[in-house]
């Protein structure tokens, strides 16, 4: 199938982009790398009247480092992270996630911001960036606002982004050298969308212990304080102190009624904890 006819604009800067999407008229869709939107357009599931391509806006492809974070433009690609073109402040965590997103040809065009804004619950960045404690910077004609990535997605394919807003950048915290990260994705084959994602970040120096249960066909479950998951014994062997019952209760509370689904999510989370425990930062499933 081919897409419905649409108009296409390619603004050179954010201000023009905001002006285009702020118009009260055509059904408008923002296009970044288009690796998720493209298939939906081709299937005519998405039927925009106007597509605004934001990938030529230099600001959205820029990177800014500070002492405690790096701010990455929304149009930076998975491959940019994978290849280290964006300096890594996460002790290898994010490059290892990037490396296992879809396929290389997709990673060369797929973007961080596009992935977050698309809000497919099975997408890696939705879970991984929430686990790492990243912040989404959102531009509108009236200014910029910042919200935690975990608050960006509101449901399947839904975010809190308003019609006149653009996800501009993602601020990723600099992890301490002692930070421990575990990420485990369950897919039936390489590059397939995830059926379960578990992510664990323990960074005691910064007082952070977070966990995410993702790919639950809804917004991921984010534990900003994941200590109960480890019997409140942070700093210990995360694998040994992992509390299956707490995790199971979480899944039930989130409405995951199917025992098979709960089982694989539990496994993903526990394996993420194990990876974090063993410091397997550079090993991937």
């Amino acid at each position: 199938m081919k897409p419905v006819a649409f108009e296409y604009e390619r603004p050179a800067d954010i201000r023009s982009a905001l002006a285009l999407i702020g118009r009260n008229g055509p059904i408008t869709k923002i296009l970044a790398g288009g690796q998720s939107l493209g298939p939906m357009l081709n299937l005519r599931l998405v039927r925009p009247e106007l597509v605004v391509d934001i990938t030529r806006i230099p600001q959205l492809k820029s990177v800014e480092q500070s002492a405690d974070a790096i701010t990455v433009g929304a149009c930076v690609t998975h491959a940019d992270i994978e290849d280290g073109r964006v300096p890594d402040v996460t002790q290898g965590a994010l490059p290892s996630v990037a490396r296992n997103i879809a396929y290389r040809a997709v990673r060369n065009r797929g973007t961080l911001g596009g992935s977050l804004a698309h809000a497919d619950p099975a997408a890696d960045w939705v879970s991984a960036l929430a686990a790492i404690g990243a912040v989404a910077l959102i531009a509108s004609s009236t200014g910029q606002r910042a919200i935690a990535v975990e608050d960006l997605m509101s449901g399947v394919f839904e975010t809190v982004l308003g019609q006149a807003e653009i996800l501009e950048a993602i601020r990723i915290p600099r992890l301490s050298v002692r930070a421990r990260w575990g990420y485990y994705k369950i897919s039936r084959k390489t590059g397939e969308f995830a059926h379960a994602i578990g992510a664990v970040l323990d960074d005691p120096e910064r007082g952070v212990c977070r966990a995410v249960i993702g790919a639950i066909e809804a917004k991921p479950i984010v534990l900003a304080d994941a200590r109960p998951l480890f019997r409140n014994r942070v700093g210990a062997d995360l694998e040994a102190s992992f509390d299956m019952e707490v995790a199971e209760d979480l899944l039930r509370s989130a409405g995951l009624a199917d025992p098979v689904v709960r089982q694989i999510h539990l496994a993903a989370l526990r394996r993420a904890a194990t990876k974090a425990s063993h410091g397997h930062r550079l090993h991937h499933h």
Partner: peptide, 19 residues
Amino acid sequence: LEAIGAHTIERASAPGGQA
């Protein structure tokens, strides 16, 4: 998993186990 009986699986596997 359904054949095994997902809910009956023993979860407390040894450390260093499944991952």
